[in-house]
Simulated scan of single mutants.
Amino acid sequence: MTANLTKTGHAPLRFAGYAAIFGKRDSGGDTILPGAFRASLDHRLTEGLRLPLLWQHRPEQQIGWIDVVGEDARGLRVVASVTATDSAAARALNDGAVDGLSFGYRVKQGRALPDGRELHDLDIMEVSLVTRPMQPLARVHYVENAGADAA
């Protein structure tokens, strides 16, 4: 049996968490409604487009891929693989120093409110591991380092 190895020869670091939480206002004043990602996720699935995992929203620092993404009652749940296993991001995640999640998007449909926005339809472009997420509840909940057993 062969392990799924990265370019560095290590098994990827995997994690699960929520990149977005429904119905909770973030620090920028946005509230995401359930179903806001549905059309974008359906389009990506149909077109075979994977979501990149970035470090701090930096396109030049892609650290992996989103393996599973979907909406549930709480928000946008993701399972990701960090393939840049020798990166500072991987070390910070594995050590528990960073556990924030965020996402890059375009608003397709929303509504301005006196104190922010209500977001109805979003085109998601990427998910990022971040130090300080706009939505404080968007966090990594579980980290599995498959490489720890192989070492």
Score class of each variant (00 low, 15 high):
Gly96Glu: 05
Ser87Ala: 12
Val82Glu: 04
Glu71Ile: 02
Ala89Trp: 04
Gly96Phe: 05
Asp99Asn: 15
Thr85Tyr: 12
Asn94Ser: 13
Thr85Ile: 05
Val79Ala: 10
Ala84His: 00
Arg74Met: 04
Thr83Tyr: 11
Gly75Cys: 06
Val79Met: 04
Ala80Trp: 01
Ala88Thr: 11
Val82His: 07
Ala97Asp: 14
Glu71Thr: 01
Ala92Arg: 11
Ala84Leu: 10
Val78Ile: 15
Gly70Ala: 09
Val82Gly: 02
Ala89Gly: 08
Val79His: 07
Val98Ile: 15
Ser87Phe: 10
Val69Asp: 00
Val82Thr: 03
Val79Thr: 13
Val69Met: 01
Ala84Gln: 11
Asp72Leu: 11
Gly96Tyr: 06
Ala90Gly: 11
Val82Trp: 10
Val69Phe: 00
Val69Pro: 01
Ala73Thr: 12
Val79Pro: 00
Ala88Ser: 09
Thr85Phe: 10
Ser81Asp: 15
Thr85Asp: 09
Gly70Leu: 06
Ala84Asp: 12
Ala92Gln: 13
Ser87Pro: 06
Asp86Gly: 13
Val82Ser: 03
Arg77Trp: 15
Ser87Tyr: 06
Ala89Glu: 01
Arg91Trp: 12
Arg91Pro: 00
Thr85Trp: 11
Gly75Leu: 03
Thr85Ser: 10
Ala80Gln: 05
Gly75Lys: 09
Arg77Ala: 15
Ala80Gly: 09
Val78Thr: 06
Leu93Thr: 04
Val82Gln: 07
Arg77Ser: 13
Asp95Trp: 04
Ala73Gly: 07
Ser87Glu: 03
Leu76Asp: 06
Leu76Ala: 05
Val69His: 00
Arg77Thr: 02
Val98Ser: 09
Asn94Lys: 15
Gly75Met: 05
Asp72Cys: 08
Asp99Pro: 00
Ala73Ser: 15
Arg77Gln: 15
Val79Lys: 07
Leu93Ser: 03
Asp95Arg: 12
Val69Asn: 00
Gly70Ser: 06
Gly75Arg: 08
Asp99Ala: 12
Asp95Ile: 00
Arg91Phe: 13
Arg77His: 15
Arg74Ile: 07
Asp72Arg: 04
Ala92Pro: 00
Gly75Thr: 05
Ala88Val: 13
Leu76Phe: 12
Asp72Asn: 09
Val69Cys: 09
Ala97Met: 13
Ala88His: 10
Val78Met: 03
Asp95Thr: 08
Ser81Lys: 11
Arg74Gly: 01
Ala80Glu: 03
Val78His: 02
Ala88Arg: 14
Ala84Gly: 10
Ser81His: 11
Ala84Asn: 01
Val82Ile: 15
Asn94Cys: 06
Arg91Thr: 10
Val69Ile: 13
Ala88Gly: 08
Asn94Asp: 14
Ala89Thr: 14
Asp95Pro: 00
Asp95Asn: 11
Ser81Val: 01
Leu76Gln: 08
Ala89Ile: 09
Thr85Ala: 07
Asp95Leu: 13
Val79Ser: 05
Arg77Met: 15
Gly96Trp: 02
Ala92Asp: 12
Ser81Phe: 03
Asn94Arg: 15
Ala80Pro: 05
Asn94His: 12
Ser87Arg: 04
Ala97Glu: 13
Glu71Val: 01
Ala90Cys: 14
Val78Glu: 02
Asp99Val: 00
